[in-house]
Amino acid sequence: MRLLLALLLALALPSLAAADPPDQGIVHVPIAPGTPLKKAGAELYAANCARCHGDRGHGTAKDGPKLDDVGALATDFYLSIGAMPIADPHQQPVRTRVLLTAYERQALVSYVSSLGPGPLIPHPHAGRGNVSAGMQLFTQHCAGCHQIAAEGGYVTGARVPPLGQATDTQIAEAVRMGPYLMPVFSGKQITNAQLDSLTAYIHTTRHPLDAGGWSIGHVGPIPEGLVTWLLAAVVLVGVCLLIGKRLRRE
């Protein structure tokens, strides 16, 4: 009974965890129409980013890395997943509600990439990729942390996100820049063609072949155990209760 309750509780919890994060104190700078993109970005940067990343992306000692060499790629990645601006710079940046508008993000990307030479935003073509090659690349480079069906996982020190919501561009950006604790895979280690295959494989993990029916999460035995106990065992104990008597003393 206790076991069942605990498992039921575990099932009920995600609804609580899914609540929206609080507003992280974004400053929407009023921008006059006709302002050059870079200039608007500079104002947004001063209001939202400079406290941790320093003046003109020079970085600070304890709160944020320098940005004068990260280019458009990393800036676009962190802004487009909503991880930046971050409330507590000592926490893992994670995908969350995007509070900056598309224009504001564009302006910031334009400004940060002007601070110094850095990589451009990559453009993978999943359609050109080979799914099987992608699966092998994924097994080799990614599955250790992201789980073979891209359902996310754990590495000591960080929670590894599932890739269900990642866009192709974000996947390519993450591969090239290695956000937070993730390794950096250069074009030498994973070529652009291989990156296409990788994204093609990640596409299949969004709609995997669930030939067996209800997929229960693609993470293997834990949900299977929950179904065994909460569904099969409960139903079969119910049948036993239906067939057999309950204790009633004379």
């Binding site: 890395p65 599955a143 590495v155 000591t156 020190g157 937070y180």
Partner: peptide, 17 residues
């Protein structure tokens, strides 16, 4: 061992492992 972690911003993130 198919997991490698490396810090992006070493002052506040765990060391490579």
């Amino acid at each position: 061992i198919s997991l490698y972690r490396k810090p992006t911003f070493a002052p506040v993130e765990p060391r490579p492992a």
